[in-house]
Design a protein around this nucleic acid. Structure first.
Length: 752
DNA sequence: GAGTTTGAAACT
DNA sequence: CAGTTTCAAACTC
């Protein structure tokens, strides 16, 4: 094929020049036009770049870790993913009850770095471990993959525990060296580890092409949303799992956790909890991540645990820091130890425990009176569920949930994601009880200096994700403008809002307003970013290779930001833009678009190839006809088959209308193009300004047969066109690439 | 820190 | 439903 003159001709064309887009700009983005060879790349090839990216990221974080270990620098951003991961899972350590000015500062700086690396290792490893859909059990001893995952996991556990115990830096270094050693082993493992990274890159499915295309050698921190997406993806997997299991009973492991922790909290005390917590963290994290792909099959505890952990993690983003902040206060007040919380069960129970144990001890002067329940949770709260989950605290729970104006609990920090969880996993309702400080990011004191708040907020917004600290002035925090209100949260002390009505004392107003808004838009308070690909079935997406892909529920409408700034809700939510987006100039648009580009380009090549073939055939036929005409001159006989310009000469029966990529590209009729329904707005073929576009305009006749003259004579094509134009008119035929069939039919060629 | 830009939400 | 206004966050200087 490559030796054919057609290909030589095609190779001389240059139809893939960057084109000026029009209309829906993200539809035709030159950046996604692949070179010819890449047309035939499989989705796996697409992920190669992601793999490279992931590797790059991996090494980058690795280097950063080493460096950070030697010279702990709290201001070091350490890359984007690490920050998010670290802070989501290990952030609580940063605000432990270190004595100010003590040597703990150094430890405090170093530990998160370790955890950071561990988190990366863990995420990659566990993602890998979840990559096999055949796995039924999380602890299959024969699964070497899982073994690979388990080893660093145990190390993580060990390390976290060590860090919790504030071991010496030498010991930490030893562990780090062990990790690095393991990593080298894994790298030596070769293919499997590469797959792991590749899968992890899929996990980091925030469209890494942005980085690849736009910035070689650019600082990884530009991909902050990826960190968010990373977490979201992890969590979403569990969310998916949770959805499968949403109506299941509370499983034994949960009860076990509950009971265990309850026993701890009741029988052993804070000190014990402190010692156990890091290990619990590790286990929970591992369990959560390990169950990623088991969900469809498992009816076991891991799933429930997973669903819990999802909420845990999201909640950890909110709570851990605040929790430590609160605990710090407790420490200051009572001298007790901090209790890192990493499970929602634990959160709940320890929350309650703290409430109980600190009853009468007003550890936070900033607490607001009122209920601390998410509004959605309020609507869906079931006493039976409450009693089911926390039957040992039924009384307290219900009283707090229903109405506790004098409760020490005042506010809620359920994330939007949890809103959905409230409905599907009502066993978590009890977790809604949260102290108001829960929304305050760690390290941010609850002062009211608005600018500082603002700055710090922007600094930590990617870290804490759901900690809304609004600054509303006119909306009274009763409109969706208000992040707190939109997230279903009451405004709390760190908020700098004015004339705020989004407070428990105005509960009726808040509820009523919510109801009003929900009447207009039932999904107004739903999570803006949904992470499951199943939530938005999309054509062309590699559903098999992409486990999850966060998407904005409505898509963005960005025009100027290129969807690369936080103005973009997709970007902000760590989600790649999707087919739902109406954004203009988005350079990181959903991979579907790239798929379309490739498809169109391939179509175009096939079309040219066919034209060339037909052309030679026609020329041959013409020569024969001329000879015949020479003999029949004067008779004026003109046969229809002698007119290649008629529709019949161009088109083929629909049975031949195939865009099949297999077999010889013999017939790719324009019939489907010409007779296609109203072309989709953003699927018009506009490879080059002034060429096809002009053709498009000139060929807007629905029949598309104007190329035949009234007297059945060939119509001379216009001259002087571009390469494509000349091609389009070659042989006296006008090629009308007015549109392509609607994409769904493209996605399923069997329909043709 | 003030002013500008941006895009979602709200409104018409 | 489309266009406009309002709003608050993000961003710039």
């Amino acid at each position: 094929m490559q030796d054919s003159p057609v290909f030589n001709y095609i190779s001389n064309l240059s139809p893939i020049e960057p084109v000026k887009s029009r209309g829906n700009d993200h539809t035709f983005n030159s950046l996604t036009f692949a070179s010819l060879p890449s047309i035939f790349t499989s989705p796996q090839n697409v992920s190669l770049g992601e793999t490279r990216f992931s590797l790059r990221r991996h090494h980058s974080s690795e280097a950063s870790n080493s460096e950070s270990f030697q010279t702990p620098n709290p201001s070091d951003k350490l890359g984007s993913v690490p920050v998010a991961v670290e802070q989501s899972y290990f952030g609580s350590k940063q605000s432990e009850c270190f004595t100010p000015g003590s040597s703990g500062t150094e430890v405090n700086n170093a530990i998160p770095t370790e955890n950071l690396e561990l988190a990366i290792e863990l995420s990659n490893t566990l993602k890998y471990s979840s990559g096999s859909p055949d796995r039924n059990a999380p602890c299959d001893a024969t699964d070497t993959v899982l073994e690979t995952a388990a080893t660093p996991a145990s190390l993580v556990q060990s390390l976290v525990h060590h860090s919790e115990e504030r071991h010496s830096s030498f010991e930490r270094e030893t562990h780090l060296r062990r990790i690095h050693g393991m990593e080298r082993e894994k790298e030596a493992a070769g293919v499997d580890w590469t797959r792991l990274i590749s899968d992890a890159s899929d996990l980091l499915n925030f469209d890494s092409t942005t980085i690849e295309e736009g910035s070689d050698g650019e600082d990884p921190k530009t991909v902050d949303p990826g960190a968010i997406c990373f977490i979201s993806n992890i969590l979403q997997d569990n969310h998916d799992c949770m959805e499968v299991m949403e109506s299941g009973p509370i499983d034994s492991s949960e009860q076990y956790e509950l009971g265990k922790f309850s026993n701890q909290s009741e029988g052993i005390g804070d000190l014990k909890e402190t010692d156990e917590a890091p290990a619990v963290l590790s286990r929970n994290l591992l369990d959560k991540l390990n169950v990623d792909d088991k969900c469809p099959k498992c009816i076991h505890s891991s799933c429930k645990h997973s669903s819990q952990s999802y909420a845990i993690s999201r909640r950890c983003l909110d709570f851990e820091r605040a929790e430590t902040h609160k605990r710090k206060s407790i420490c200051d007040a009572s001298g007790s130890y901090s209790v890192p919380l990493h499970s929602n069960c634990e959160v709940t129970l320890v929350e309650k425990k703290l409430i109980r144990t600190t009853a009468g001890c007003d550890y936070s002067s900033s607490r607001l009176p009122g209920i601390g329940l998410h509004l959605n949770a309020l609507a869906t709260t079931s006493e039976s569920n409450l009693s089911k989950v926390v039957n040992h605290e039924t009384q307290a729970s219900e009283s707090q949930v229903t109405e506790t104006p004098n409760s020490k609990i005042s506010s809620t920090c359920l994330t939007p994601s949890e809103v959905s969880h409230d409905e599907s996993c009502k066993s978590e309702v009890h977790i809604a009880e949260t102290p108001p400080e829960a929304c305050a990011p760690v390290g941010v004191e609850s002062d009211h200096s608005s600018p500082e708040n603002k700055r710090l907020k922007s600094k930590h917004v990617g870290e804490s994700l759901a900690c809304k600290r609004c600054n509303c002035k006119r909306s009274k925090c009763l409109k969706l403008y208000c992040d707190c209100f939109a997230a279903g949260l009451y405004c709390i002390e760190p908020c700098s809002c004015q004339e705020c009505f989004n407070k428990p004392i105005y509960e009726n107003i808040v509820v009523e307003t919510r109801r009003l808004i929900e009447s207009r838009n039932p999904l107004a308070f739903a999570p803006k970013v949904i992470g499951s690909i199943n939530a938005i079935p999309q054509f062309g997406e590699e559903t098999n290779s992409t486990p999850t892909s966060a998407r904005h529920k409505r898509g963005c409408n960005c025009r100027k930001s290129g969807c690369l700034k936080k103005y973009c809700e997709c970007f902000q939510g760590g989600a790649g833009c999707s087919i739902l987006c109406r954004c203009i100039g988005c350079i990181k648009h959903f991979r579907l678009e790239r798929w379309i580009y490739k498809f169109l380009y391939f179509q175009f090549i096939l079309l040219l190839y066919q034209i060339e073939a037909e052309e030679s055939e026609i020329e041959e036929h013409k020569s024969r006809v001329r000879k015949k005409d020479a003999t029949d001159v004067g008779l004026g006989r003109v046969k229809d088959q002698d007119l290649p310009m008629t529709l019949s000469g161009i088109c083929r029966p629909s049975g031949q209308l195939t865009a099949s990529f297999s077999g010889k590209p013999k017939i790719f009729s324009l019939h489907s193009v010409l007779s296609s329904p109203q072309p989709e707005k953003h699927l018009q073929v506009i490879p080059e300004e002034g060429t096809l576009e002009a053709l498009d305009n000139s060929c807007s006749q629905p029949s598309g047969v104007k190329s035949t003259s009234p007297n059945s004579k060939r119509v001379s094509p216009p001259h002087g066109g571009s390469e494509f134009g000349s091609t389009a008119w070659r042989g006296g035929r006008k090629l009308v690439l007015r549109s392509i069939p609607p994409f769904p039919t493209l996605a399923s060629p069997r329909k043709h």
